[in-house]
Amino acid sequence: MTERGLPVAHAALTEISETIEKACRIADRKASDIALVAVSKTRSSEEIRPLLEGGHRLFGENRVQEAAEKWPALRAEYPEVELHMVGQLQSNKAAEAVALFDYIHSVDRPSLIKALASEMKRQDRHIPCFVQVNIGEEPQKGGCDIKAVPDVLAQVRDAGIPVAGLMAVPPDDANPVPYFALLARLARDGGVAGLSMGMSGDYPQAIKLGATHIRVGTALFGRRDP
């Protein structure tokens, strides 16, 4: 079977599931409480299908247009798929995002909150959203300022948007543990339970520090072609 064949997908999913269970045992948590979001950005339908055939149903995309091109057909076959928007979202894409996704992980500013709230009301689809925090205070990354988290959470709640929790991406090439711990504290202070944190290289640490949603791409699909 080829690199992208079903047995390989099964093996990767099994390995990750075992790692999740091990991290949960250490943290005295239940593996069933961890949502594994398979990040399928830049992956073709043919690459995604083995995971679907293997029973996985949670997927994440970074771009609205890319998701709109491949997921309607796949969801016609697998209607129980739960689709997560994990990339930066422009306010002018709010209508498409509300129609397509079941969770949004990147709410970080008033204009986007307003656009999403308007579309959720218009479409009668009230989608849980994570507030993204720029946990490393990096100018090139999305997310609200750490000090602004209480205000942004209040704005989301006031707009009638369901709050799923907080999301963050620690700085590259840095120890992620302090950033995960900080996000967990911000969530506790803000009265939210969801924590979208941890990716292919650091999801075990994220789980030990309270992650409820981990976003894993490379560990499932392999490295992207150059």
Rank of each mutant, 00 (worst) to 15 (best):
L182E: 14
G5Q: 06
E119G: 01
E82G: 01
T19Y: 03
P79L: 09
D33K: 02
K147W: 02
D124N: 15
D151A: 13
S200A: 12
I26Y: 06
A68R: 15
E138Q: 10
E47V: 02
A206L: 08
V8C: 03
V131G: 00
V81H: 06
P110L: 13
T218C: 03
P7L: 07
H10D: 07
L100T: 08
N175E: 15
H84L: 08
I214S: 04
S45W: 07
M167E: 05
N175Q: 07
D173I: 02
M1Y: 12
M1P: 03
V37D: 06
P204L: 09
D225H: 11
A38I: 09
A211Q: 08
R215H: 08
S111M: 05
E82Y: 05
A95L: 03
G190F: 01
P72V: 11
K41W: 08
T212W: 11
V149T: 01
V152F: 00
I214D: 05
I26R: 15
N92Q: 13
L112R: 00
R223E: 15
D124R: 14
L153N: 04
E77D: 14
R29T: 01
M167S: 08
E119C: 03
I113T: 02
A187C: 07
P226D: 10
M199E: 12
I34N: 02
T2C: 03
S196P: 08
A115H: 07
Q155D: 10
A94H: 10
D145Q: 13
E3L: 07
A154Q: 14
L6D: 12
D102N: 12
E82R: 11
P50E: 13
G198N: 13
M1A: 12
V192M: 09
F221Q: 09
E3K: 07
P139I: 11
D158S: 14
A12I: 02
T14G: 03
I113K: 00
K22G: 04
L52K: 10
E82M: 05
H10Y: 08
I16W: 14
R157M: 01
R122E: 09
I113W: 01
I20P: 04
E53K: 13
N175F: 10
D124M: 11
V81F: 07
I26M: 03
Y78K: 05
E96I: 01
G198C: 12
A181Q: 15
D145C: 03
D145I: 00
C129K: 00
D28E: 12
T14I: 02
A68I: 04
K93G: 06
E96Y: 06
R63Y: 15
W71I: 04
E80A: 14
R188H: 14
P204V: 09
Y103Q: 04
A154L: 10
R185E: 15
D172W: 13
G210P: 01
K121T: 15
R43A: 04
P72G: 10
V133A: 02
P110E: 14
L58T: 05
A23L: 11
E69R: 14
V98Y: 06
L166M: 07
V8E: 14
S106N: 05
D151Q: 13
P170R: 05
A219G: 10
E119F: 02
I20F: 12
P7A: 08
R157G: 13
S196C: 09
